[in-house]
């Protein structure tokens, strides 16, 4: 039995195909202005990789901000529940999930059954989310994926006084104009990001084990700063792309809803 989970986020659309034992294919594409188009494209890509027909998929659950716009989904579940499901499936000992997505950040506490105990989310703005890193990478004229490596080469991090993405951007431009090495600026950006997320984690009252999901989990410089700030080791998801955790959770819900155990 093949099921699918489709996570339409603010920046990327993710799709996972699951056969009850393992992820058989996945795809990550940029979200489209029309969420349905992104969902179809992600589905086509994943089906091509798995060499299955779309009609082979017996059930699909949508999640993410566009969860109600997945045209081929039979049901939808919030991303908080889906990230919880996905992370607990991968690491049954996980009790705190830090999910940093494109435009929001969530910290979720789980109980021993893998159910959501409580959660906190960023409320005020997009600071401490993937969008913050994206804007800073653009100012530094590097690809988002390069930001982490650049930060690792820094040795004297700049301080960003403002939590606001726009004001922080102005600070970064000021440092660039002063001739500050880009590596130190990148390190300062990652530290600033970690501080914003750290505030949220402290609100949620951290319980071990801790893991990180979402696109920003791939930025190892931010994860390292976060570990240092919180004084915990953060589990890195390695067996699937951490950005797919929500889509994986949706696929697991789909499997359950389709009658799988």
């Amino acid at each position: 039995m093949i099921v699918a989970g489709c996570d339409i986020g603010s920046l990327t659309t993710k799709l996972v195909l699951f056969d009850g034992k393992k992820v058989i294919a996945s795809s990550i594409i940029k979200s489209k202005p029309k969420p349905e188009d992104g969902a179809y494209e992600a589905l086509e890509q994943a089906c091509a990789i798995a060499t299955v027909n779309q009609t082979d998929i017996v059930y699909c659950v949508g999640t993410g901000y566009g969860r109600k716009r997945v045209p081929f989904a039979q049901d939808n579940v919030s991303e908080i529940s889906c990230h919880t499901k996905g992370a607990f499936y991968l690491y049954p000992n996980v009790r705190t999930i830090i999910d940093i997505g494109g435009q929001d950040c969530k910290v979720i506490s789980l109980n021993d059954r893998g159910e959501v105990d409580r959660f906190v989310t960023n409320d005020k703005c997009a600071a401490g989310t993937g969008r913050f890193l994206e804007v800073m990478a653009k100012v530094l004229k590097v690809e988002l994926q390069e930001l982490s490596n650049m930060a690792k080469k820094g040795n004297d991090a700049i301080t960003l006084a403002s939590a606001c993405t726009v004001w922080a951007q102005a600070d970064v431009i000021k440092y660039l104009n002063e001739g500050m090495p880009k590596e130190n600026i990148a390190l300062g950006v990652c530290k600033s990001m970690a501080k914003r997320v750290g505030v949220l984690v402290n609100q949620a009252r951290i319980k071990r084990d801790v893991c990180i999901t979402g696109g920003v989990a791939k930025n190892t410089a931010v994860v390292k700063e976060l570990e240092s700030l919180l004084g915990v080791t953060i589990l890195k998801i390695t067996n699937v792309d951490p950005q797919l955790t929500g889509a994986l959770g949706a696929a697991l819900f789909a499997y359950q809803k389709a009658g799988g155990v």
Partner: peptide, 18 residues
């Protein structure tokens, strides 16, 4: 709306599981 919707949905799902 969507920001609120997602949080409320997740909370309601928590209640349903409970």
């Amino acid at each position: 709306y969507e920001r609120m919707r997602m949080r409320i949905d997740a909370f309601i799902e928590r209640m349903e599981v409970r």
